[in-house]
Design a protein around this nucleic acid. Sequence first.
DNA 1: AGATCGATCTTTTCACTGCCAAGATTGCGC
DNA 2: GCGCAATCTTGGCAGTGAAAAGATCGATCT
Lengths: 186, 186
Amino acid sequence: MAYHHGDLRRALLAAAAAAIAESGAYAVSLRGLARQAGVSNAAPAHHFGDKPGLLTALAAEGYGMLADTVAEARLAGGGIVGMGAAYVRFALEHPAHFEVMFQPGLLRTDDEELAAAQARASDALAAGIAERRAEGGDAGLTGVAAWSLVHGYATLVLSGSLRPEDPRGQARAIARLLFPEDATGH
Amino acid sequence: MAYHHGDLRRALLAAAAAAIAESGAYAVSLRGLARQAGVSNAAPAHHFGDKPGLLTALAAEGYGMLADTVAEARLAGGGIVGMGAAYVRFALEHPAHFEVMFQPGLLRTDDEELAAAQARASDALAAGIAERRAEGGDAGLTGVAAWSLVHGYATLVLSGSLRPEDPRGQARAIARLLFPEDATGH
DNA sequence: AGATCGATCTTTTCACTGCCAAGATTGCGC
DNA sequence: GCGCAATCTTGGCAGTGAAAAGATCGATCT
């Protein structure tokens, strides 16, 4: 048994994501994660400082993945409906990250890495809205509406308030209600 | 100092709501609430059983208030835009209730009182959508879209992701984007 | 090769929390 | 008045987050 774990930081983040996805963010304990990783109580503190530090790292990872997911959908030519569907898909595939990302009470909101990842995600989303600017209308308001729509849908599904048979399909359907002229989503 | 507090249950719920609104749901402790109420450690347990029990009572109270708020907006003739604005207003005025209501990991989801309050709120919301059925379109999908829009907007504002100057006005504005033919919101 | 230094992990400890068991106090109905 | 049920207290246990101090490893430099 090596004294050094090898990749403890990554192992802890993965274990935390699994635990949160199953039992919610409040159920995760640093000591429990340490036990799973076969490591002592205080080991996580070295990598993350404290509990908010660990959750902040998880949130930053989430914002990074969200930025990549949305940017990829945009480059694939999915239009704003495709980007919205990608947003929902990310939330449903990474529920733990998504849950932590939007609970500032759990995070160290002054963290640099977190701010950078948030900015990347924000830029990726804004790029999709900017493309629609030529078509007229208040781009800022349209962006707020689009974000609210997909964010709310994802949140309601994750909380169990909505239980659709085909979440991705329904996500596209409601996005087309807000953007009926977007023909890219077949 | 009376041995009986008089209205401990209400006092604990109010203190919990205040604490959650300020510091988030994970920061609340039964012992801390008991101290604020000038009562011993185990007193809250008698009224709520355990911590999920207390948060469940808070969530049920929240669903009740939401049902009243939305029903009132409907009877006032505000149309679906007015109901959406009422939903957002409730969330911003009662952030602690709203936060707990949509985090099933914090609640006893099999609680009867909670289920009843949820049903009341669900009925109040559905009534607004049903009125629009005559105008054609998929009423179910429209309802999901409307709920997602206002719920997402409220969540994003509460999480600090959006910081609008006039949240209520912007809520109405994005609701009109989804329901442009609803003329009731001046 | 050998010494050094920083990164990584452990052990120990403390205050705090949720929860349980057992008992004390109060007010209400008979 | 008396008992009874509701309400609250005390004491205790296991688990948690966090800090302090020390042990071990691995890379780097000479």
